[in-house]
């Protein structure tokens, strides 16, 4: 089981802030493909990966990164702090 968190417009498009999913995806990109295959709202959220960032266990990461041992995946647009 893995916790997936969504922030900002990714959260709005998916329609929920977090969910727990059962997955055998090897990488973040594989997980995204699994999600997109589920429902259209995921397709809308993940349409352009260049517009998205991913954090694994609260550290910025890459879509090519492996998911082995990861408990929490977060998807969000580029950050706008400050």
């Amino acid at each position: 089981m893995i916790d997936i968190l969504y922030f900002a417009w990714v959260r709005e498009r998916v329609g929920l802030p977090r969910e727990r999913v059962e997955t055998s995806a090897a990488t973040v990109a594989d997980l995204v493909e699994e999600l997109k295959a589920r429902e259209e709202r995921y397709e809308a959220a993940f349409a352009d990966l260049r517009a998205l960032r991913v954090a694994l266990d609260q550290e910025l990461s890459e879509f090519t990164a492996p998911l082995a041992g990861v408990r929490e995946v977060a998807f969000f647009p580029p950050m706008t702090g400050g």
């Binding site: 900002a8 647009p77 950050m79 706008t80 400050g82």
Partner: peptide
């Protein structure tokens, strides 16, 4: 300041009478 702008996980949304818009990150911030 430079790092907080694009490496701290905050997202800004501007809300007005006409609706709400997420603030887009700027290339110059990166």
């Amino acid at each position: 300041m430079d790092y907080l702008k694009s490496r701290a996980p905050f997202w800004k949304k501007e809300v007005g009478a006409g609706g709400a818009d997420w603030v887009a990150a700027k290339d110059e911030d990166e």
